[in-house]
Amino acid sequence: MILHPGIVALIMGACFVAAMVLYSAVMGVAVLRRWDMTSSSERQLQLERKTYLTSTLMNYVLGFEILSSLLFIHTVDSLHAIFVGAMCATGSLNANPVGWAALYAKLAVLFLSAIWIAVNVIDQRQADYPLTRFKFAGVLFLLPLVFLSTGLQLRYFLGLKPNIITSRCGALFSESGGGLASSLSSVAIRPTMMAFYGLLALFLAAGIFALRRRTGTWRYLFAGLSLLVLPVSLTAVVSFISLYFYEIPTHHCPFDIFQGNYHYLGYALYGTLFAGSFFGTMTGVSEMLRGKASVGTTIDGLQRKWIVLSVAAVGIFAAIATWPIVFSSFTLDGYF
C-alpha cells in the first residue's frame, strides 16, 4: 500500500459514505415495512420525521460522491509518478487492475445517487409523498453497490506497490503495466466520427421533439439516446477526440486531458458529458414514475428543465470536443 494523503482522504470519505448509506438503509427497512400515509399513529409520525434524515444523508452522500470522484481521478493521476512506465492515470490504474473496477463502481454509485436525489425532489414536492417506498427500496438497492465500491477502492489502494530504487539493481527490470485497452483505440476513426456526430444530431432532434410533444414515447427515446451518448462519446474520446487534444496521431489516452498541460480540460469535458447523460436519463426515469399517483404535473415541469439542461450540457461537451478538431492546425488526413 502507498500512504499518500489523497489515498487516506479517499478511504476515509468512502467509509463515511458507506456508514451514511447503511444508516439510511436501516431506516429504509422500517419504512418499507410500516409506511402508511393514511395512518396518523405515533409510529407513522416518527417514520415521516426519519425520511427527512434520510434525504439529508443522501444529499450529503451525493455531494461526497461528486467530490470523491474528482479526488479519485486526480489522486490516481498524480500517483503515476510512482510507477515505472506510467505517464497518467491509465498507468496507475494498470498498476493494480482492480482500479478499473473501482473507477466504474464509483461512477455507478455517483450516477445512481444522483438519480435518487432527483426522485427525492419529485417526491418532496407532493403533499402525500407518493414515492417514499420506491425511494427507500432504492436505498436498499444502493447499499450493496456502495459497499462494493468502497471495498474495490480499498483493495485497489492496498494492492499498489510502488517501484522505487531498491538496494539490488534499481527498478529497471520491474514490470510496467500494459497499454490501454487497445481495441478501443484501434477503432477506425471515420466510422466513429460519423457515429458520434450522427448520434449527437439524433439526440438534439429527440430533445427538441421531446420538448414540443408531450407524449411519453419521445421522452423515452430521448432518455435512451442520452444513455447511449455516454458510451459512444467515451469511445469517441479514446478513438479520435483525444488525438486532436494531444496533437499526436498515436496517443489515445482518455486521462492525460486531466493534466495541467491540457488546462485540466478533462474535468469540464467529462463533467458536462456525465451531467448531460444524467439529466437525459432522468426524463426517462421520471416518465416511468408518472404512473404513481399525483406526481404528473410536477414531473412535466421538471422534465422540461431536465431536457434543456441535458441538451445544454451535451452541447457544451460537444463544443469542447469539437473545438480542437475545427480550430487546431492538427489534422488526421493520413489516418482516415
Binding site: 502507498i2 500512504l3 510512482i82
Partner: peptide, 12 residues
C-alpha cells in the same frame, strides 16, 4: 519516483 514515494509516504 523514489522521492515522490518517500514524501507521499511520510506525509501519509
Amino acid at each position: 519516483r523514489t522521492y515522490e514515494t518517500l514524501f507521499s509516504w511520510r506525509s501519509g
